[in-house]
Each structure stands twice: as structure tokens, then as C-alpha cells.
Design a protein around this nucleic acid. Structure first.
Length: 293
DNA sequence: CTTATGTTTCCTGCTT
DNA sequence: TAAGCAGGAAACATAA
């Protein structure tokens, strides 16, 4: 466990699925209401109005996830551990720092951040934004106090992605059109997938859990990492988690699995017969490989 | 308002 | 027997 020490799950042997969930997941948003605006896909953009300077580590991490997603870059392409930073630290990084920490993906991240810094200056009434003296400790609240209730949306993945991803200058196979700017309609030379609220489709949700063994111990497990075969260990718990994300408390594995089966036709998943709770990523699922292509 | 997409919900029947 | 798996149908939610 690399998590905040105070958050160990001290739950009795068998309990409701609720308690099996990684309750340590308690990102804290400064604007509580934001997450409720659109129930389904809450927190569309980690508070657009909040200058990156004030992000917590969690928010930095979430920005990373979303930016990679937006650019269709495999999440394992960069060593997340290099980004265990809060907004203040992140904001002080130079272009060079980014390329150093994220290789070829660095420029994309740098651009994205620069854009966010810029736009947030105008969208928020932030008169301040004095570099250097802000302390973002939102991240370290005792999680026990927080009711596992209406968290923002991304508990599936975590900051401490301690994947074996050695820092490899993985050059994206695709020209990776470096056109950041996730928010401005113009200047998007990159066709963002249609109808994808923010990279939160079921299969992506599952994938992200898989990529975060530390945050989600025992929910889903790789059966064959290189082949993309995985198995649900706590099917109902995963379903509850999914339901929580979609603000649907009546989600069950039965229903979740129906949605999973629809992926066969789209080749996002491949059929694995004979083995219960086992699925396999198909050719149209991206971002799950250790080293993409 | 209309559509397409991506589920969500329910169900019948079969397999482990 | 319980828990999964297969899909068809139809309802829904969201985004464009």
C-alpha cells in the first residue's frame, strides 16, 4: 500500500460490496457543487476555473489521465510516478522538465497545462495566483471522515500508478498531432472521438482499474497481461463502483456484463469462453498494453 | 426537436 | 442450486 497511511481499510472479513470498495479514494474538490451538475459524468473538466496552481495531487493526476485520454495516448506511455506532484510544483515545471519526465508526451502535457493556466486566468475571478505561497493540502484530509458518497467521478484510477513502466522514450506510433488545447473549438487538428463524455466508457473504466493495482486491490486482475486477458475477482464490487460513477446505485454485475457483451461485436472485447468472469481486450480497445505497439 | 451511441434494464434459455 | 453467459428488445441518457 502506498496510500495515505490513515486510510487502511479495516473492514471485517466479509461485508457489503460497498465496504470492499477502495474508500481511500476521496478526492477533494474545492467546489462541491460541481460534481453534481451533471450526475452522470460529473466534473467534466477538473474545475476549469481553478488555476492549475491550486490543484491537489489528485487533480494533477486526473488532469494527466484526461489529457492522455484526449490525445489517445496510452496511459502506460509515461511513468505516472514522475508526476506525484501538486499543482504548484506542476505549474513551475518548464517545457524541458516535461520532456524530461514524460519523453515524447511531454510537449503535449506542457501545451495542455499552458493552455489551462492561460484560460483559467480569465475564467476565474482569481485575482491572486501568487506563485509559491499556496499550500494545497486538500489531498491529505483524513479519508475516514469522508462519507463514501458523492465523489467526483474518477475513483477507478490512481495517482500512484506504480506500473513497471520504465521510462521509455516511447514514441507514439501515430504522428500524435501535438495540438493541445482541449477546450477551444478551433485549433483542433485532432478528431476527438465522438460521443465520449470524457473517456469514461465502461471498458475504459475497467481498463483503468486494471492499470491501478494499488488503488483497486483485488477487484479485477490480469490473467494474461500481454494478451489482455483479465478476470473479475469481485464482480459485484466492480459493478457497484461503476454504478457509483454513473450515479446509479442499482447497478449489478448482471447488467454490467450485458454491456460488456455488447463490446464483442465492436471488437473492444474478445470472447473468452469457458472461463467465468474472464474477458479479453480486443483490437479496438486501446491503452491497456504495457507498451503500445 | 431528432438522431446515434452507449449503455441500462429485463427476460428467456442454456451452461458451469 | 446458484452464478454466469448469450443475446434480443426496448427504455434511457447524453451529446451533437
Amino acid at each position: 500500500m502506498v496510500l495515505h497511511s490513515g486510510c487502511s481499510m479495516s473492514i471485517p472479513a466479509s461485508m457489503s460490496v460497498e465496504s470492499q470498495l477502495p474508500t481511500s479514494w476521496s478526492p477533494h474538490y474545492n467546489s462541491p457543487d460541481v460534481s453534481m451538475v451533471s450526475p452522470g459524468y460529473a466534473s467534466r473538466l477538473w474545475s476549469q476555473d481553478l488555476h492549475p496552481q491550486y490543484w491537489s495531487k489528485y487533480q494533477v493526476w486526473e488532469w494527466l489521465q484526461q489529457t492522455l485520454d484526449m490525445h489517445q495516448i496510452d496511459a502506460t506511455s509515461i511513468p505516472f510516478s514522475n508526476f506525484d506532484l501538486d499543482g504548484r510544483q506542476l505549474s513551475s515545471m518548464s517545457y524541458h522538465d516535461f520532456t524530461h519526465l514524460a519523453g515524447s508526451v511531454g510537449p503535449v502535457l506542457y501545451q495542455s497545462l499552458t493552455d489551462l493556466k492561460w484560460s483559467s486566468q480569465y475564467s476565474s475571478s482569481a485575482d491572486m495566483f501568487t506563485p509559491g505561497d499556496i499550500k494545497t493540502e486538500l489531498d491529505d484530509l483524513p479519508c475516514s471522515v469522508l462519507p463514501y458518497k458523492e465523489e467526483p467521478s474518477f475513483y477507478a484510477t490512481s495517482e500512484h500508478l506504480d506500473i513497471k513502466t520504465q521510462f521509455q522514450p516511447t514514441v507514439m506510433t501515430s504522428p500524435a498531432s501535438y495540438s493541445p488545447d482541449p477546450k477551444r473549438p478551433h485549433s483542433r487538428s485532432h478528431q476527438v472521438k465522438k460521443h465520449n463524455p470524457r473517456g469514461t466508457h465502461l471498458w475504459e473504466f475497467i481498463r483503468d482499474i486494471l492499470l491501478n493495482p494499488e488503488r483497486n486491490p483485488g477487484l479485477i486482475k490480469w490473467e494474461n497481461r500481454s494478451e489482455g486477458v483479465f478476470r473479475f475477482l469481485k464482480s459485484e464490487a466492480v459493478a457497484q463502483l461503476w454504478g457509483k460513477k454513473k450515479n446509479n446505485s442499482s447497478m449489478t454485475y448482471e447488467k454490467l456484463s450485458r454491456a460488456m457483451r455488447y463490446y464483442y461485436k465492436r471488437e473492444i472485447l474478445e470472447r473468452v469462453d469457458g472461463r467465468r468472469l474472464v474477458y479479453k481486450f480486443g483490437r479496438n480497445a486501446r491503452g491497456w498494453r504495457e507498451t503500445e505497439k
